[in-house]
Design a protein around this nucleic acid. Structure first.
Lengths: 157, 157
DNA sequence: GCCGAAAGTTGGACTTAGTCTAAAAACGTC
DNA sequence: GACGTTTTTAGACTAAGTCCAACTTTCGGC
């Protein structure tokens, strides 16, 4: 068995990302997560499980409609909720006025660009949060650092 | 001059909180921040600058209407934006589907309760984030830790 | 292959949060 | 009191998210 990969995306996201044009692989991933792989869901998964853009539901809809014009808005919303429930996606509150979706399931931090609104992942190990266990009276399910500012140099929009 | 207080709320929030029924003190605080202290604004400030509830705009409106039935929704939205622009409030993205407002201007972290949705402050010193300066390519304007889970014991809703 | 049940999709209505506008009211200066 | 500026108001509008009824697709039993 190969060594663990550096990528922290879910198995589904990794496969989707590695083979974005492989609907069969995506369908199999959906099935492994207990999601029936209809054509619409495979199309939605092809995009959302392989993107680093942290899109909103309507952004996913706009994107999937390019190649699947008949897909309905309700289907996209239903499917994103279903993927979230099945552990394929995380739903985050990071942007004003909308929820965003993140295929990287494992813990990580986020950076939100003040100028562009773009959201990007910060690896878990890039930051250390000390004393989280000393928060009294709180059962911590998860935590992350949200960093806001401006990107410079690499990765211009 | 007395020793610095433990409270980290803005001067306005401290004064409002210490004397929630002192419209004159609130009016003076608004004036110090370049905000004309109309009756509506004082009413809104009396609540929002003294609460730890992190309310949304519509929650502020509902609350202020109790004592100021004629205040309009547009006025509340306009006033909250004005307070934010003048440094009296911070607008946060922590809750699904709405912005919330926080009178504590100084840096701090947040806890979001999975069960109730309640948001509460975590003092800045309660957590340490290491290596924030090592984030390459990012001009950091602010950062905070967002902790999610369940409160237990103290401060039940 | 048929049939019924379950699951999924669709079009669009509905709700809520946030913004915008024109008119009216309030305020400050002269 | 007049006038210009600011604030407030009522409500229209937009966008995100949810819900519903009808239709379509899929699946399992026979």
């Amino acid at each position: 068995m190969p060594a663990p990969r550096k990528s922290t995306r879910s198995a589904a996201a990794r496969d989707a990302s590695a083979s974005p044009a492989a609907p069969r692989a995506i369908a199999e991933q959906l099935e492994r997560h207990g999601v029936r792989p209809s054509a619409q869901r495979v199309a939605i998964a092809s995009y959302v499980l392989g993107t680093e853009d942290h899109p909103s539901a309507d952004q996913v809809w706009a994107r999937v409609k390019e190649r699947f014009p008949m897909v309905s808005r309700a289907t996209v919303y239903n499917t994103l909720r279903h993927f979230t429930e099945k552990g394929l996606l995380r739903e985050l509150v990071l942007a004003e006025g909308r929820q965003v979706f993140d295929p990287v399931i494992e813990p990580h931090h986020h950076f939100v660009d003040d100028e562009t609104g773009a959201i990007r992942d910060i690896p878990w190990s890039a930051l250390k949060v000390a004393k989280i266990d000393e928060l009294e009276g709180l059962d911590v399910r998860e935590y992350m650092v949200v960093v806001r500012g401006v990107s410079r140099g690499a990765r211009k929009g």
